[in-house]
């Protein structure tokens, strides 16, 4: 038994020792560490899935000395975290819901950061004739009337909220219809599902571009007014939640809106896709 214990200890030492030596990549910031160095950012999956925040995080940390904890969840959950004071700063894309939080005083200093656009994708032969519809409402009406398969995110994310508001604007309620499927998965998985089933779906352009080569879907609707996807940054109100790290949150908002970072956002993956994934919006 003793030998077993000794061996066990040796084994743990070995694992930690070896992996410890290999851990060269750890980034430690050299800027002066602030009093309360941790900033929790609750944001949408698209900003992380696209890789944008992974690129911005080390820059922010090196510049300011803060440690940024990025929690990528659906916009619905991110806003909820703001409402409960579980995050310090939010970067989300559901303007109407955000305005409600501002009005109720849960978040403050809300500012536009960037935008991109939503598109409707569908089978290449476009069986419902979405392409030729005169406007977005007409396009949705055709899907509705033809009972064409439509895959919804169904997860209360920013994209899901957008899609629901589009149906509402068209005066239609697809919920519960047999051709309207709520997937409950992330955007990428939803696109795959849509491709396998050859249905229609609403997606942000960034995710579509990332998946383009892997799915059999075409853009059937783009650039309609109403398809723009706005991202705003906002700080969780420290007066309501004393634990909120206001200084750190403020620093992050300023960082996002600074001219250099705005430029970086505009250039992000531009070479890869031949178009910007995000268009900077700061005034």
């Amino acid at each position: 038994m003793k030998r077993l214990l000794v061996l066990f200890n040796l084994f743990f030492l070995l694992i930690f020792g070896v992996t410890g030596c290999l851990e060269k990549g750890a980034v430690t910031s050299k800027a002066t560490t602030p009093k309360n160095p941790e900033v929790i950012l609750a944001t949408t999956t698209s900003t992380v899935d696209s890789g944008l925040l992974d690129q911005l995080k080390p820059e922010f940390e090196q510049k300011t000395g803060y440690k940024l904890k990025i929690v990528a969840v659906g916009t619905g959950q991110a806003l909820k975290m703001g409402e409960k004071g579980e995050a310090d700063v939010l970067l989300t894309h559901a303007p109407q819901d955000e305005e409600v939080l501002v009005a109720k005083g849960y978040v403050i200093e809300r500012q536009p950061v960037m935008h991109n656009d939503f598109i409707i994708v569908g089978p290449k032969n476009d069986p419902a004739g979405v392409k030729s519809a005169k406007d977005l409402n007409e396009a949705l009406k055709r899907i509705y009337e033809k009972k064409a398969l439509f895959i919804s995110r169904g997860d209360d994310s920013g994209t899901d909220k957008k899609e629901k508001s589009l149906w509402k604007a068209a005066g239609l309620n697809p919920k519960g219809q047999s051709w309207y499927k709520e997937a409950g998965v992330g955007m990428g998985a939803c696109l795959q599902l849509t491709s396998e089933k050859q249905g229609y779906s609403l997606t942000d352009r960034g995710t579509y571009l990332a998946y383009k080569g892997k799915i059999d879907l075409a853009i059937v609707r783009e650039k309609d007014p109403g398809l723009i996807n706005y991202y705003h940054v906002m700080i969780v109100n420290p007066k309501k939640f004393p634990k909120v790290n206001y200084e750190g949150a403020k620093k992050f908002a300023e960082f996002l809106l600074s001219p250099e970072v705005q430029k970086e956002i505009g250039e992000f993956k531009k070479n890869l896709y031949g178009q910007s994934l995000f268009i900077p919006d700061a005034k």
Partner: peptide
């Protein structure tokens, strides 16, 4: 899970 979400199969 993340890489699947990003489409990097």
């Amino acid at each position: 899970l993340l890489e699947v979400g990003r489409g990097n199969f």
